[in-house]
Each structure stands twice: as C-alpha cells, then as structure tokens.
Simulated assay, not measured.
Amino acid sequence: MSEESKNNNLGLMLKELLKNRSLSMRKLSQLTDIDTATISRIINGKRKANPEHLQKFAECLKVPMSDLFIAAGYPIEQNQEMDQSDIHTSIDSIQNFLESSNLYDKTFSIVSVEQELAKYKQYTQTEEGKETILNKFEEKLQKVGSIGPFISNLKEMYEKFRLNKGTAVELALIGSALIYFILPVDVIPDYIFPVGYLDDAIAVKLVLNLLTRTDA
C-alpha cells in the first residue's frame, strides 16, 4: 500500500469521526492543541500523522489508539510478535526498534522500569493511587483496545486489587503494575508503536515474578 493511500485511510477515518461527533477541524485543533492547517493536511493525505498526533486524536475522539495507528500504516502487529515472556529478548527488541526508528532518543533499560514500579508501589498505597486505579483502569483499556497478551494478566490483577484479594505487599505490587499501565507517559510513551506497550508488558512480567517469590 502506498504512503498516500495509508494517509488517506487515516483521513477518511478522521473525517467520519468528526462528522459523527459534530466536530470541525478548528474545534479538533482547539481540543488537541494541533494546528488546524496540520490537521487539514493529515486528513487530506498530504502529511503523515506522527505518533503524538495520533495519541491526541485518540484521546479527543475516544477511539482506541490501535485503530488510528492501523489506519495511519504503523506496523502495530509487531507488538504481538515480540515475546513478552522473555524479558531480555523483549528489551533487545525495544532497543533495536528505538535506535532504528528515530522516534525516541532515550535508552531503555530494565532498571528504569523497576524504578518506576518502585515509585508506583508507594503511590498505590495512597487513597489517590487507589482511586486512580479503580477509576481509570477500564477507561485506559478502552483507549488501548486489546493490544498485547499481557492485557489478560492486567485484568486479573485489577480484579484482585478491586476485591482486595491478597496481602498488603501483594496488592502494592499489583497496584504498581496497574498504575504503570494506566499512566500514558512511562519509560516509553504509549504512542511509540509497536513498542509503546511492550515496556508495560515487561512491567507486568516483573511484578508477576515478584508475586511468585512472595508466594514461595
């Protein structure tokens, strides 16, 4: 499929979404803080939308990011092909993609994920942290769609957290993975496809490993 055709697929989808929501391009510009001329070029297939544009469109128009990324021609199917069960393989895949794509200029490491999880582990024990999980988890699921096999793990974690099934230590660990998933800007921003959710999958795997140790 040509680049122009891919851009046009996105343009047609955006036109339909705007029509269904009775929104003008000018209003979409105000809501997303993206210049009206830029939106017009994207819709008319004269400019390729970057991942940050798509994230803002998805949030404003309340559609799964995966739908817009597919329409824009981004290869999100690679996200399914990477093996989240092997953390080291996944880390290599992430770093290789980031270096070759020029979408993100920071180095990814497992330490950075562990540091975020440790921070969120404390946050999840506060009332604000608990409310964030209970009020925002389902909303984030709808935005994401069903990207990644780790989603089923997150759903199980959420039910345990919601029903308070587990020790204080276990619930804090589970909460850290849920917060990591809910917040859009973690170690790798969610809009960096196809690896934007792979670090979330690694976070889930790390927490599952820790939970196994607490059960031992």
Rank of each mutant, 00 (worst) to 15 (best):
S2K: 11
E4G: 06
K6W: 01
N8A: 10
L10N: 06
L12G: 04
M13P: 06
M13D: 04
L18A: 07
L18Y: 11
L18I: 05
K19D: 12
N20Q: 15
S22V: 03
L23M: 15
M25Q: 15
M25L: 11
M25A: 08
R26Q: 13
R26V: 08
K27V: 13
S29M: 03
S29H: 03
D33C: 06
I34R: 10
I34L: 08
T38S: 12
I39C: 07
R41K: 15
I42N: 00
I42M: 10
N44R: 12
K46W: 06
K46I: 01
K48F: 03
N50M: 03
P51F: 10
P51M: 08
P51R: 00
L54G: 03
L54Y: 04
Q55W: 13
K56W: 00
K56Q: 09
F57D: 02
F57M: 06
M65W: 00
S66D: 05
L68I: 09
L68W: 09
L68S: 07
F69E: 12
I70S: 04
A71V: 01
A72E: 09
G73Q: 05
E77W: 13
E77D: 08
E81H: 14
Q84P: 12
Q84N: 09
T89G: 07
S90G: 14
S90Q: 12
I91W: 07
I94A: 04
S101E: 03
S101P: 04
D105K: 09
D105G: 00
K106T: 02
K106Y: 13
T107S: 12
F108I: 13
S112A: 14
V113Q: 02
V113T: 02
Q115K: 14
E116L: 14
L117V: 01
K119S: 11
K121F: 00
K121N: 08
Q122F: 12
Q125N: 11
T126Q: 06
T126F: 03
E128H: 08
G129Q: 08
N135P: 06
F137K: 10
F137Y: 13
K140T: 14
K143N: 01
G145N: 03
G145T: 00
I147S: 01
L154G: 03
K155G: 00
E156Q: 14
Y158M: 02
K165A: 07
G166N: 09
T167A: 05
E170P: 03
E170N: 05
L171T: 06
A172S: 15
A172H: 02
A172K: 08
I174K: 11
G175H: 04
S176Q: 01
I179R: 01
I182C: 07
L183Y: 12
P184A: 04
P184C: 01
I188G: 01
P189H: 05
D190N: 11
Y191V: 00
F193D: 10
F193L: 12
G196E: 02
L198D: 04
V204E: 11
K205R: 15
L206A: 04
L208E: 15
N209K: 08
L211N: 10
R213C: 02
D215Y: 05
A216L: 10
A216H: 11
